[in-house]
């Protein structure tokens, strides 16, 4: 498992609808904020990159210092962004794919307004479990 990892789902309107610090390192508030800043900044690159490839998994698109941003873009242009310091690309890909399945289940909820925050605790638990499994 990666020592530092931050997972964020960004809606098509560029709003973070889910965020989780999934690293094994001790959680510090400043670090979490910094992670968000890096991920936010990476959106620009994702925006360009997403349209140049047909693949959903964009691999690592950005880095800052030793942190790498990997991105997975769904068909609805929701972006799964993972900030990590490990190089396990296969694991990350599997992680993203499984998270997408969870996300689709969320979307199927008729009471969920697409683009609003994901508050399901079940989703949160599952994502963290996936992070432990793959990252």
């Amino acid at each position: 498992m990666a020592s530092t990892a931050c997972f964020i789902i960004v809606s098509r309107n560029d709003i973070p609808i889910y965020e989780a610090e999934v690293g094994s390192a001790a959680k510090k508030e400043e670090a979490a904020q910094q992670h968000q800043f890096i991920l936010h900044a990476a959106l620009d690159i994702v925006e360009d990159l997403a349209w140049t490839t047909g693949a959903m998994f964009l691999k690592s698109v950005d880095k800052f210092n030793d942190l790498v941003v990997s991105v997975y873009v769904t068909a609805g242009h929701t972006r799964f962004m993972l900030l990590h310091d490990s190089r396990n690309e296969d694991g990350i890909k599997s992680f993203f794919q499984e998270v997408q399945e969870l996300y689709i289940k969320i979307l199927l909820n008729p009471l969920y307004l697409p683009g609003s925050r994901i508050t399901s605790s079940h989703f949160d638990t599952k994502v963290r479990a996936l992070a432990r499994k793959y990252l």
Partner: peptide, 9 residues
């Protein structure tokens, strides 16, 4: 209306 609301940031 609430595009890009990254509240933490």
């Amino acid at each position: 209306l609430f595009e890009s609301q990254w509240s933490t940031i």
